[in-house]
């Protein structure tokens, strides 16, 4: 899900960095010193999660956890996701350095959408959790498909990315399972 440098149009990648910096200021405004360790450890978990592979249907997938990050951090998710994407780019070269902005916007939008769904208290919790996990993958994929199309790849990219629906379903199940565990063990971690 990490776009490397050179894959999409350079102008889009550069503009996305400017948008990402603005988003950091907006979403990180008035962060209290008490919120910092939660942001740090969630970031570390997100970073490590990309190295974990779950055997699934004869292959392996790694959890994205953007939905879960949205549930845990709410509007503070974006600065954390930006930092993780920056780390992944510099340390493991997953995604490019110039593409940090575009990658963090894609994933941050997924986390933000998941948070919005999670806040709909009228819905049962299990439904909110599954849907938050699902949407946490689908939104980044849709944004990514749009960016590829704007870079001249054509509509066909949507067919290629449809495989991510499967990953989003797995993510929904994992998110539900983790939320249930948190609710049982440590309820206050859920925003």
């Amino acid at each position: 899900m990490h776009i490397a440098d050179g894959i999409i149009d350079a102008r889009i990648a550069i503009a996305a960095n400017a948008v990402a910096v603005a988003a950091i200021y907006v979403s990180g405004r008035k962060t209290t010193i008490e919120e910092i360790p939660k942001m740090g450890i969630t970031g570390a978990a997100l970073f490590v999660a990309s190295l974990v592979h779950i055997p699934f249907a004869g292959t392996s997938v790694h959890p994205g956890l953007y939905g879960l990050v949205g549930i845990i951090l709410g509007k503070r998710a974006f600065p954390v996701i930006f930092t993780v994407v920056l780390f992944q780019s510099m340390i493991f070269q997953h995604g490019g350095l110039l593409s940090v902005g575009i990658n963090s916007i894609n994933m941050g939008a997924g986390a933000f959408a998941a948070w919005l769904i999670w806040r709909q208290q009228a819905l049962p919790e299990y439904l909110r959790a599954v849907f938050a996990g699902f949407i946490g993958i689908i939104i980044p994929v849709l944004l990514m498909a749009t960016e590829f199309q704007l870079s001249g790849y054509g509509r066909g990219i949507l067919y290629l990315f449809s495989i991510y629906i499967l990953a989003a379903v797995v993510e929904g199940v994992v998110t539900l399972s983790v939320v249930k565990f948190f609710r049982r063990i440590k309820s206050d971690i859920l925003t």
């Binding site: 450890i41 970031g43 600065p79 930092t83 780390f87």
Partner: peptide
């Protein structure tokens, strides 16, 4: 941005806590 600097510095250290716990 300062916030990113703080998160990054803590995250870098917390990765080791997390891998120990894992």
């Amino acid at each position: 941005p300062k916030l990113i600097g703080v998160i990054a510095a803590l995250m870098y250290r917390y990765v080791f806590i997390l891998s120990d716990e894992a």
